[in-house]
Amino acid sequence: MDETITTNGKTFVCLECKNEVEIDDSLALGDVIECSFCGIEYEYTEDSEEGKVLKVIEEEK
């Protein structure tokens, strides 16, 4: 099962820590961003009608 979230305007709520994270205007498809609170990383994978779709990246070490 994919873990994805959709941004709401310029923010999204982190799936792990539930904090609201702001995103930068320069975010482009394929970019990786991390939650500024807990460090969990997401990849901006596509656009939907609701907003930018972010997919959790599994940590591999």
């Binding site: 792990e16 820590c17 539930k18 904090n19 991390e34 609170f37 807990c38 460090g39 969990i40 990383e41 940590e59 070490k61």
Partner: peptide, 27 residues
């Protein structure tokens, strides 16, 4: 889940807990 080894924390005193709670109340 944590990132780069930060997923486990040892709570030595009440402040350690309070700080984490304030940072991640919904977690």
């Amino acid at each position: 889940r944590g990132h780069t080894g930060q997923g486990t924390l040892f709570l030595h005193r009440e402040d350690d807990f309070n700080n984490i709670q304030a940072e991640f109340p919904e977690r």
